[in-house]
Nucleic acid binder design. Structure first.
Lengths: 342, 342
DNA sequence: CTGAAAGCGCTTACAG
DNA sequence: CTGAAAGCGCTTACAG
């Protein structure tokens, strides 16, 4: 319709130059109170809004961080572990006048998507999935953007890259879960893992395996649960219970999987925790919806998101990441789906 | 470090003008195959990425939609009803080369936040909360951006505004729930609602009330549950059960609240559904984590998000919204937390 | 305390 | 098939 009002329109109406308007807007330079007040009146009257595009071009800074979630599942925000990180990120960015661009893409679309053609963010935060090869490839692609980035949940820092990793101590979480179960008498373990290899889940498994091997118990049996949805996990657990002797304990890769397993065990008539113990991971609200309340590990997800934002902003200001590997502690949270250690 | 490579660098290296490079990039104009190939090689070699800021300024189009969630709770993505809408929105936008800027703000910060000073989006999608007065005020503020916007979950279309509303038929959901409960013999109802007045929840209540009044039963008793968190809802339900005679049925404002109520009833020794029936709303994954499986209403949340994106993009192209009020159907989903109608 | 001018990196009629 | 020039709306030294 009507052309948007620009800084020039304001300047003309106020009888000053565009520069003076800019100074008022940005609090720079010396402008007399009288002039400033007059200009502000005109801005209000005309409904003037600065053009972000122009300012960004001029300053070659975007005040924008891109959040990239690389997953096969198009419903990429359904996992509370991810949404909590996104929330922490946005909240911190908003408080610091940065914008967050959110994008979920499938590994297969990775290359063709706009984000990788254009530069619209000063920095990136990414959650990757897939095997190590695929993740390495993602990291190389990200690096071609020539913008600093933070990887969440990754276990290894890519060498020679303007990049930092932030994660919670999933391996320690795995260790604590395994110790608790061993102390409660478990010797034979299953762990439920999705097909998609999340780095965080791998670490949980490694931590648990390590403690279990050290205790001289047989290594964990991995039950592969496809897309980690409730239905698939439930079905795969049932199948495994049909095929194999039930273990003493099932370690869920996350809470949702643990709950599906719980229901599967209940369907088989196995009493929890007497006949079989079950643990989850992350301690989001759902953990308490179930009966018995799930033994799980409290996640630092929100803090991870916040930290990613603060590290990235610091990096943009200082020119280099101060730390490239940040590990946040997690907290074991016993429930009633496991027995208390004797 | 090194200055970013611009279209001029590419042009110089390829021995052509910037315009020709631009033509190759955008598939406009006639460029000979030989030249085009050479230019593409140079782009690859130099690692050139177009500056989005420059293009946006030039074309005064942002290819960006802003998603604004106005809530008191800083953890604004914890509600799956919201995340599902956000996911639908991003997915559709990404597929259409639009970016999504996500921002959650508190009502009190509404005015001071950047989104309302600057223009960085071609259009907006908003989820509002608060009472009608507050929401009206938000709508007026949004209108000052002079960009089209879509309101999710709103029940009334603001007059004379470049705006559309999209919602699911929450009122019908409320009706269906009430009919089911009445048919199962219920006469006395409670409904759990948070302090924050979500328009969608109001509509559920209205729908249910209407059917219940028509059946000649006493109107619903509303139990106010603060921030709608598990803990508060649980506590308030317990308190109500202590204070008042238990009703025949409790209608949860959403699934999470219904589940908290379920646990509270169980704690009081009330058998579900024999002594008390309970229903939820939205049918996200958690609805089935509980025992007995919750009777609820399947939500069109993901479709709402997608539709918001498609309507907004269509509006940006055509200059006007074709429909200003879009209502998506919902689906009643009986579980085991209610009795089957006799 | 205020202004004229240059320039950020693109794209678009308009010529040739 | 290709190029020179103008301009999108800002901000920043540099003068006055």
């Amino acid at each position: 319709m009507d052309k948007p009002v620009t800084i020039k329109d304001v300047a003309r109406e106020a009888g000053v130059s565009a520069m003076t308007v800019s100074n008022v807007l940005n609090g720079r330079g010396r402008v007399s109170d009288v002039t400033a007040r007059r200009i502000r009146k005109v801005i209000e009257k005309l409904g003037y809004r600065p053009s972000v595009a122009a300012r960004r071009l001029r300053l070659s800074q975007q005040w924008t961080i891109g959040m990239l979630i690389v997953v096969e599942d198009p419903d990429f925000l359904s996992d509370p572990f991810i949404t909590a990180q996104v929330t922490g990120l946005t909240n911190y960015l908003t408080a610091n006048s940065y914008s967050l661009i959110l994008r979920g893409i499938k590994p297969s679309d990775f290359r063709t998507t706009g984000l990788f053609q254009d530069i619209e963010a000063d920095g990136m935060v990414a959650i990757l999935s897939g095997d190590q090869d695929q993740r390495n490839w993602f990291v190389r692609e990200l690096a071609t953007l020539r913008a600093p980035f933070v990887l969440l949940q990754e276990q290894r820092v890519p060498p020679d890259t303007d990049c930092a990793i932030i994660r919670q101590d999933d391996m320690d979480g795995g260790r604590q879960v395994a110790r608790h179960l061993l102390a409660s008498g478990a010797r034979k373990f299953w762990m439920l893992l999705p097909q998609t290899e999340w780095a965080a889940m791998r670490a949980r498994k490694e931590g648990a395996s390590q403690v279990i091997r050290e205790a001289g118990a047989p290594d964990i049996e991995v039950i592969s649960c496809g897309d980690e949805s409730y239905d698939v996990t439930y079905r795969e657990t049932l199948k495994a219970l049909d095929r194999l002797t039930p273990p003493d304990a099932i370690i869920g890769g996350n809470d949702q999987m643990a709950i599906a397993a719980m229901k599967a065990c209940a369907a088989k008539g196995l009493r929890i925790p007497d006949e079989i113990q079950i643990t989850g991971f992350n301690a989001f609200d759902i953990w308490r919806y179930v009966d018995p309340v799930l033994t799980t590990v409290r996640s630092a997800a929100h803090a991870i998101g916040e930290r990613a934002a603060s590290e990235l902003i610091a990096r943009l200001q200082s020119g280099a990441f101060t730390e490239t590997e940040i590990v946040l502690p997690i907290e074991f949270q016993p429930g009633r789906s496991t027995r208390s250690p004797s």
